[in-house]
């Protein structure tokens, strides 16, 4: 078939020379390469003791952020649940009562907020959808492996950022 464009380039394919036919040079070359690697510095990161550097925007385990006063940012608008392609987020909204201003930033808040970590595909769409910067995928934590399926429903007790560390990371 004649070429469709003027950019084609035949891949180089020459006949084997006698030396190549005798197997040995290529084998020796291959052995040389592997031997070179034998003495090379190893690329391995010994995982449980050392960890490989992760990028700052790595999409890891979710966290529900608090604002600078320690109040929860989430207002249970439900955008994250809608944006989730895996339908892993469920929540129920509640009205803030008087005296809870230091707990919840807005008048509406999430009474329950659950992420099913087994369903979650860590695509980051919830973080992007959140208009309050409440849900956030951390770069330094990943969801750990566990024995039971039930342990993967992360409720607010595990999602909300602990009070002490209010500054981000």
């Amino acid at each position: 078939m004649e070429p469709l464009s003027n950019r084609s380039k035949k891949v180089q394919k020459r006949e084997m020379t006698f030396a190549e036919k005798a197997y040995l040079p290529a084998i020796a070359q291959g052995l040389g390469i592997t031997l070179k690697h034998f003495f090379k510095k190893k690329a391995t990161v010994q995982y449980p003791e050392q960890t490989r550097e992760r990028s700052e925007i790595w999409r890891g385990l979710h966290v529900l952020k608090r604002d600078e006063n320690g109040a929860e940012r989430c207002t249970a608008c439900g955008l994250c649940a809608v944006a989730c392609p895996a339908e892993a987020i469920t929540m129920t909204a509640g009205e803030r009562k008087a005296g809870e201003e230091n707990l919840y930033r807005e008048e509406k808040y999430a009474v329950t907020y659950e992420v099913n970590m087994l369903r979650c595909i860590f695509c980051g769409l919830c973080e992007e959808a959140c208009p309050k910067a409440a849900i956030f995928l951390q770069d330094d934590k990943v969801a750990p492996a566990r024995f039971e399926r039930d342990e993967f429903i992360y409720g607010k007790d595990r999602l909300v950022e602990p009070l002490k560390t209010t500054e981000t990371k």
Binding site: P3, S5, R7, S8, K9, K10, V11, K13
Partner: peptide, 8 residues
């Protein structure tokens, strides 16, 4: 600029 490699 790039070429399209083709085989035979």
């Amino acid at each position: 600029e790039f070429e399209i490699p083709v085989g035979s």
